[in-house]
Amino acid sequence: MQTPPIDTLRNTETPEGVEVGLRLAGSPVRFASWLVDTLIRTAVLVPVGSVLAIFGNAGMGLFYLVAFFGEWFYPVVCEVYWNGQTPGKKLFGLKVVRDDGAAVDWTASTVRNMLRFADFLPAGFLFGFLSVLATEENKRLGDLAAGTVVIYADTDERSALSSLAALPNLSPAMPPLHLAQAEQAALIEFAERAPQWTEDRQIELADQLQPVTGELGPVGVKRLQSYALWLLGRR
């Protein structure tokens, strides 16, 4: 048996022969998005119910129909026609896709949403929660039967390619020794991600390369970033 991966990134290969990564979502954020969807449904049902109540019995009948649709098919229609997202999922940047990353079809979406009833049992999504913990791909029972995963769709949000220029404005410097490709990649990643960390953390990491940079503290950080810029092709 393979050792389970330690992060939540899953690679899947497309027919074009390229690997794409799916970032799996965990229970808390999915629960939150379900809660939002439930609130939205209630927020729609209450006013609709009070308007329909004016029409007496016939109104009640229509209300039951709307409630039925809301209970079972609101998520299905949203997922199929709205890129795998219900309003709740959209709010949290989540999205449902088939195991291979393709868009969900009617069958997949219907199965996963009908089986939510089983996930909810015995109370408060306990079975679903256990299933998410037990499966490598964070699948609740409905996802297992439907062949779907819930992933982060955040890439739509970050306006593509704009953040590439966000590297610090330093003069590039050639690293003092030859670096293997993995080492180059590590330096580039350090430079890209450093702005997201506190200064202490940046220094802590950069200090470990003191034998290479010959510097400690903020100067070491800057030096590493200069190397990264050089590796990226700035001259």
Binding site: G84, T155, I188, E192
Partner: peptide, 19 residues
Amino acid sequence: GYGRELIDELNGLVLRGYH
């Protein structure tokens, strides 16, 4: 090995296209 940021960006684009 062009760096995580570029790869993530392209990964997202390809995923959207695939979808």
